[in-house]
Design a protein around this nucleic acid. Sequence first.
RNA 1: GCCGAAGUGGCGGAAUUGGCAGACGCGGCGGUCUCAAAAACCGUUGGGCUUUGCUCAUGCCGGUUCGACUCCGGCCUUCGGCACCA
Length: 828
Amino acid sequence: MKDRYDFTEVEARWQQYWAENNFYKVTEDPQKTKYYNLEMFPYPSGNLHMGHVRNYAIGDVVSRYKTMRGFNVLHPMGWDAFGLPAENAAIKHHVHPAKWTKSNIVTMREQLKELGISYDWDREIGSCFPDYYRWTQWLFLRLFEKGLAYRKDATVNWCPSCATVLANEQVVDGACERCDTGVEKKKLEQWFFKITDYAERLLHDLEQLPGWPEKVKTMQTNWIGRSEGVEFNFTVEGSEDQISVFTTRHDTVFGVTYLVLAPEHPLVEKLTRGTAYEQPVQEFVKRISQMNEIIRTSLELEKEGLMIGARAINPMNGEAIPILIANYVLMEYGTGAVMGVPAHDERDFEFARKYKLPIRVVIQPAESTLEVDQIDAAFTGEGIMVNSGPFSGLPNEEGKKAVANFMESKGIGQAKVHYRLRDWLISRQRYWGAPIPIVYCEKCGLKPVPDQDLPVILPTDVEFKVNGSNPLTVSPTFMNTTCPDCGGPAKRETDTMDTFVCSSWYFLRFASPHTDQAPFLKEHVDYWMNVDQYIGGVEHAILHLMYARFFTKVLYDLGLIKVQEPFQNLLTQGMVLKDGAKMSKSKGNVVSPEQIIHTYGADTARLFILFASPPEKDLEWSDQGVEGCFRFLNRVWRLVASYSDRVAGIEVPSSFPKLEGSERELRRWTHYALRKVTLDIETRFNFNTAISAIMELVNALYHYQAQVAPEEQDVRVVKEGLESLILLLAPFTPHLTEELWQAIGHTESVHLQAWPAYEEEALVEDEITIVVQVNGKVREKVRVPAGLGRAELQTTVLAMDEVQRLLQGKQLVKVVAVPDKLVSLVLK
RNA sequence: GCCGAAGUGGCGGAAUUGGCAGACGCGGCGGUCUCAAAAACCGUUGGGCUUUGCUCAUGCCGGUUCGACUCCGGCCUUCGGCACCA
């Protein structure tokens, strides 16, 4: 064995060994318990960044640990390979997106291999390849058949400079993330997935996910935004027209003093046509609709409204109240009309003050009395209903039920649940995405592409213009097709799918990555699903994780899979920071993984990133910390090298006789580390404390080496320590440990070994240090036999000279003795 | 504004069930080796003080307890998410 730790040579050699032996290939094995471990697949942007390294290092520890524990581990990797940057590269560098993406994949695959991550590369997939997106299209068609994919007019984010629609997440502070042009609102016919049909299940089934962080579940709950209320109608005075409103405060329905419609409400035009209000209302509506949504929905924007001349009748008390339109009422939520109760709603109060609308108190708080002419804020708390006809005197929560029942029995309205969640807009006016498999026939109209004609392939003979327009719309070879029904001329849909569609089912494709019969084979998916451990950044807490859950439920309903939730356990890793900020080119604080790997090796990089912080917390990068980890691995190397010749031929006995002194101490450290590392990984993924226990074992081994003369050393105890050290370190630093495992006399890979068990007896100590506290402060320490009972412990401690000295001149009020821990004395 | 998370040495962090606060690592200081340096190794390292010991100290104020980083009440700060959702 070499004296020096040559990481470059060691890492290259073992990577080659793993590749040549297809070492991490996995197949379905009904004899073994499966474990599906998945990290979020990356967008192939060109290079791995530290966030990736962290994500995949964490995942690799889990995989290698579970494998050593005897599980049949599925650990795949692929590429979320459609998306905007490829098109930007096409425009800027005149490379085709496919070519650019492929070369990025080659680079990043190489980098992942250099990190020594244990992927089954035979299962690699890429969402931009026809053998994958064929099935994305196939799944689209299943949603289409179920009515879950549909077209409707929608107001979308439009970048005039790029001539395309942007996703909400591509709009940063009201501007296009790419060219910084202000985003406009535009009405376009777009494709949607009806995720709102699944709102209740998506919300309810969160309860079935105890292995998810509370934080993520809360975020999803808020995003779905369930609210219970009633929907009921006001009648427009002197006409048959009904205005439906939704409210969660039906207990305040007798306090309604006006009605507000969204400017886009369909009745606005009808009610003002030919009246004196027509002109000003039209101007108002035009002005509001030209505002972009970011400004319009910001809280800073002052509430603005306008009377439209008509009045509405409150069905509960027959009162006629004015109708207004206002900028703060959204057409997309509820019914697009809101009842105004200024006394009990902050927004209504502000609005009523501004426009001198009447205010009527209908809920009185318990402690005080609200007077209309004195209140300076809405009262939104609990109280007793007043001025509310037959409901006066009821506590408002009870009143809610009574009003709802009354409305239902009289046919005025009904209880209803609304959600904040909107349908998922999936169409993009982009080239580099999965084409939506739809054609428009002049005669037959909108027709789905038949399954056997899939995939609808992206054409390659296209040109990318600087203005960013979708080249599909000017590609005759793509656009012109024939109708699957009548054979007549037809045009293809030129929109492509949001990349989140592709990533909503990729975890299923890993079960059968190469089949051309179906998106996945049932026997494979039923064996592997669901994902036992999913690991990725918290930035996907809502979008990706919600969409993937939605797809899973749809596929369950279609009978294609047996699980209703895709990810059993979720680990959201923290960010990698440098100087307290997220690494970014503009801040100039980027540390390149390649650079670190070439200077210190992959094992050092992995070890540092796992040691610096627990996985779910943010991690502060430290060059000196990396060096510390490198020093540690060198220390491990030299330790093993110093013993390798002496221990190679030695067998570690299955049990040791009762040892004393240094040998006993060393065994205690060995088994302490075995226990600590096992529990830290098993129960809470705290790799940082697991690694510190391994460091303590190394310190103990060095200590033993320094304290005991070479000829006195017990090589069996040493070898047990070294073997434990190497096995415990194997999931963290896979290359180094392969090398060291061989060096101490083994021929099989360290990663094929069983995870070592710890021995409780080796941890037992004969004597324990007990702390003596006086009035809560530590005053003395004493060694006593382990397991000494409460009474004996108390007697022993009280008999001590030092303790007697402390007691002098004081009165002993109370003694608390905790075996193996402390004795606490209360003195007066 | 609402929801959530977090505040511990010079720094990253540890303390798993209420029981010695600061494990492990970084950095600092002192030493060994060396002509010298690097590397490596050994020792030391929360602050203060009148230094065999005492005292302060886990964001702040209070409470419960023999005993609180940990539990309870009230605040402050930072970060993340949502934000006119009727």
